[in-house]
């Protein structure tokens, strides 16, 4: 027990720095995922065949490819091709683009969850189309989309751990634990605290999502 606390107090600055890097990765990647995901979802609901195809191609490609392959492609692959991109950009970018495919699917299913009948009803009641979107479609779509997006953030926190160890792209929490471990060889203690770091992020997020799911559920 004593050893457990000792490891934490001695290496707290490193752990904290790693934790913050993980948080930064998640925040930046989530921004990228939201922007790209919304754009791709928009492509997939456009009435133009070719745009739909492009959207589908994006989703199917990025959803079925391992994140590790994306990281290799974006960092080492592009570097060999003569395109220099930074370590952080490659890491956060890959995670963001990977998650964007899932975000696009979540948003698309949210929009489709609002029935065409409701839109027709709203229009026939004299609402204009923008009003219908704002007052009928969006409030319901947002309620359907938020729980899946929450789940994607959780998945993202977990996936962000790949960035650090895969290519040594950044000293995030897991990479930090690995470095401390190679210096001290106190594997159980070091990884225990890293686990606490990850669970501090994921478990509250899980409970929040469960709560939101219940609260936002549309009773039909």
């Amino acid at each position: 027990m004593g050893e457990l606390w000792e490891v934490l107090t001695r290496h707290f600055p490193e752990f904290r720095a790693g934790f913050l890097v993980t948080c930064t990765f998640v925040a930046v990647s989530f921004l990228i995922a939201m922007v790209v995901g919304t754009f791709v979802a928009a492509l997939r609901v456009m009435p133009v065949r070719i745009l739909q195809r492009i959207g589908t191609f994006y989703v199917e490609t990025f959803r079925n490819i391992p994140l590790l392959v994306l990281l290799f492609l974006s960092f080492a692959g592009l570097r060999r091709a003569g395109i220099e991109i930074g370590r952080f950009t490659a890491g956060a970018g890959s995670l963001g683009l990977y998650t964007a495919a899932y975000v696009a699917e979540a948003i698309r299913s949210g929009v489709f969850a609002v029935g065409q009948g409701q839109i027709d009803a709203s229009l026939s009641l004299g609402f204009t189309y923008p009003q219908t979107l704002r007052r009928v479609v969006l409030p319901q779509a947002v309620r359907t989309v938020i729980p899946p997006l929450g789940n994607l953030i959780i998945a993202m926190i977990k996936n962000s751990a790949i960035i650090g160890v895969a290519l040594g792209l950044a000293n995030d929490l897991l990479k930090t634990a690995r470095i401390i471990n190679s210096n001290t060889l106190q594997t159980t203690e070091v990884f225990f605290w890293a686990a606490v770091g990850y669970l501090l992020l994921t478990i509250p997020a899980t409970f929040t999502v469960r709560y939101l799911e219940k609260k936002l559920a549309i009773k039909r």
Binding site: R178, T188, A195, L199, I203
Partner: peptide, 19 residues
């Protein structure tokens, strides 16, 4: 279940390997 589900998979693999 909640603990193992909420840890990164790569974390678990790496930990078991080193441990």
């Amino acid at each position: 279940i909640d603990v193992w589900r909420n840890l990164p998979l790569i974390f678990i693999i790496l930990f078991l390997f080193l441990w």
